[in-house]
């Protein structure tokens, strides 16, 4: 066990625990946007920054990626930390003025928009947190979506901005998206995501449309389970 202090509170946690988890386990809340439990962490959004003091040195780190260390003193809400968090939220509000999630978060922490930033109109609600890209690669395993370009021009989507040939329409990306940028449109027998429409499969037992055909084909191929056995929805299995 490692012993350390967060916001004046003596805490111990197992070695390898990230500051974020250690804090949450002790009811100290740290806001995050890009740390999703299902995917690996990138430290991209920078909202979860905290200050870590080690001896005389104090530095700002992302709590989602910084493993606890013996004797460190962590501050999650001091002025230096709040200055970064304020900037990050103001920047994200300017990038995604329509994102309710970001506005709510800013309101909670008491941060107002910076009037000097002209709100973007072309970025939607995407904060480039990369959870969608990671879930598609790490969990689904198809890497249908990825980044293009860099810097302010960076966007996320299928390559060449065209329908992806490998997307299975599973919707995992939409599920992990923290701001609701990724839209999934569904009718009774179709699902549309990233511009491509997928045909849904009807459950052989109850007749309910429950999953994209492409997804079932993919699972069958990957697991070796015959497609027929997959044609029954989870409720009827």
């Amino acid at each position: 066990m490692v012993n350390f202090i967060i916001d004046g509170k003596k805490i111990s946690a197992a070695e390898g625990t990230m500051i974020l988890e250690a804090a949450r386990a002790n009811s100290i809340s740290i806001p995050t946007l890009c740390a999703h439990e299902t995917v690996s962490r990138s430290g991209a959004c920078r909202l979860c920054v905290v200050e870590v003091k080690k001896g005389k040195r104090a530095k700002i780190v992302t709590s989602c990626l910084y493993p606890v260390e013996e004797g460190i003193i962590v501050e999650t809400k001091n002025e230096r930390v709040m200055n970064v968090r304020r900037l990050v939220l103001q920047l994200l509000m300017a990038r995604c003025p329509e994102s309710e999630v970001i506005c709510e978060l800013a309101k909670e922490i008491g941060i107002e928009t910076q009037p000097r930033f002209i709100p973007d109109k072309d970025k939607g609600k995407c904060i480039l947190c990369r959870s969608c890209v990671r879930v598609c690669e790490e969990i689904v395993g198809v890497s249908a979506i990825g980044f293009s370009c860099r810097g302010a021009d960076k966007t996320i989507g299928p390559p060449f901005n065209e329908d992806s040939a490998v997307c299975i329409g599973c919707g995992a990306c939409a599920y992990v998206c923290p701001t609701g940028h990724i839209q999934m449109e569904a009718t009774e027998d179709t699902r549309k995501i990233w511009g491509r429409t997928f045909k849904m499969k009807k459950c052989d037992v109850c007749g309910r449309y429950f999953a994209p055909e492409d997804q079932l084909k993919y699972i069958s191929k990957k697991t070796g389970v015959p497609l027929k056995e997959l044609a029954i929805c989870t409720n009827c299995r």
């Binding site: 991209a44 970064v84 990050v88 920047l91 300017a94 930033f117 480039l128 990369r130 810097g151």
Partner: peptide
Amino acid sequence: LVSESCGKCTPCREGVRRMNDI
């Protein structure tokens, strides 16, 4: 730096371009 930022983290990607605007 705006054109050379990789675009991964918010302060650099968004912040530097807002500084550039100003």
